[in-house]
Design a protein around this nucleic acid. Structure first.
Lengths: 221, 221
DNA sequence: ATTTATATTTAGGTTTGCCTAAATTAATTA
DNA sequence: TAATTAATTTAGGCAAACCTAAATATAAAT
């Protein structure tokens, strides 16, 4: 009944994530970039998803998800994030190792499995990268976090998430001692290249980070 | 490099399980039965697997696994059984609910995931149905268990496994109070239909089970 | 040893998801 | 507004894994 292919789920997830950012119509090329296929293949799939009423699609006009499409996308994202948390909190994986495995696990079909896993993990609200985990109805708390690059001086900030999930980036943060929950303060900003000088609470340690890095770190006041 | 498709893995697993029993060449129709496809489709796949040197295949002569084929099959079985145990021991599933989910999970590709899961579960030797779990080298203890239907009277027996894994059968055992580890004694056998009268240790409870049921229960002395 | 039955393979065709190249539409720039 | 560029779609094709029907090989029965 409710069975969609691995590939279909990945397209829906990609469309969801794109429309989350741009908050409008998603284009063929954007999707092609994410799912790593030729644009022509994307067009094929869009026609198929449209027939199944999972997306709204008109030639050349971009796409958006229908309610059913969004539900499926959120279900996949929910599974992805639960599995990521499982891998780190129970199996001892580091946060830079879990993405590829969760990309596979997110397609396992079993409503009961998701519910039991959710309970086993204690109905968590956030995954190891600080992303919110949708509940069984697709609802989640959207964080009021903002990129560190937007931060003013003086305030004490808490690191609550990352935007870039690439292993290289995460490993770099590890090396700097930057982890979720860490409290930091912006000591200074260089006007020229927007790089930042930050310090940790309870430590004299200082750190320089580039604008590109700061853009990908999410913090709250 | 070491990547085989979902389907290829299922064929190899089927061939492994069939050759375990009959201990010889496996036929096209036997495989077709297990993987639930037409015999002609099996022939297609056998030719493909043969080219990849995962099986030894000659037209009309049946097949057997090569060493590489066997390794892959055992890897899949290892994963299947580890996941089944995870589902029952950590997520609260019952032994009749885990098969279909494990059929999906067994194809997740990540050597590290398997190792970490194995460690998380305490390097278990048996799955929830009493089947041995191969280690990272494909080695496992083959049980010296035998079907309850072959048991003589008098001895106290321990239930250590089941042959049939169908939910119906397992639920029936649950209803009878027959579970792994339970100690029983054969009180009598009916010559006519080979049905059995068994009793539990530490209980006056008596039970009649058919020959068909007894054939699918494994016990040790 | 033939004949009959069963098992297996070949032939031809489908679907899914992908590709490249060519055509078309939309967006941008002159 | 016309011309150029970029994005998107159509056309035609490929590989994987499946199917049915027909052909062929093996096994069983007379």
């Amino acid at each position: 009944m409710n069975q969609y292919s691995f590939t279909e789920e990945n397209y829906l997830k990609a469309i969801y994530k794109l429309s989350e950012r741009d908050d409008g119509k998603v284009t063929t090329n954007q999707i092609a970039e994410i799912v790593k296929t030729a644009a022509a293949s994307v067009t094929d799939m869009l026609q198929k998803l449209s027939e199944k009423k999972l997306i709204l699609y008109q030639k050349y006009q971009g796409v958006s998800l229908t309610l059913s499409g969004k539900k499926i996308a959120l279900g996949v994202i929910r599974k992805h994030r639960l599995w990521e948390l499982f891998l780190t909190s129970k199996l001892g994986f580091k946060w830079d190792e879990v993405h590829d495995i969760a990309e596979q696990l997110e397609h396992i079909q079993s409503e009961k499995l998701v519910q039991n896993l959710d309970r086993f993990l204690g109905k968590p609200k956030f995954d190891p990268h600080g992303d919110p985990i949708p509940d069984e109805n697709g609802k989640f708390q959207s964080q009021k976090a903002f990129p560190l690059s937007d931060a003013k001086k003086t305030y004490t900030l808490t690191i609550t998430g990352v935007i870039d999930h690439h292993p290289d980036f995460l490993q770099y943060l590890d090396k700097c001692g930057l982890a979720l929950g860490k409290k930091i303060k912006v000591q200074g900003k260089t006007g020229y290249d927007n790089s930042m000088n930050i310090s940790f609470l309870n430590s004299k340690q200082q750190l320089f980070i580039s604008f590109d890095v700061a853009k990908n770190i999410l913090v709250t006041l």
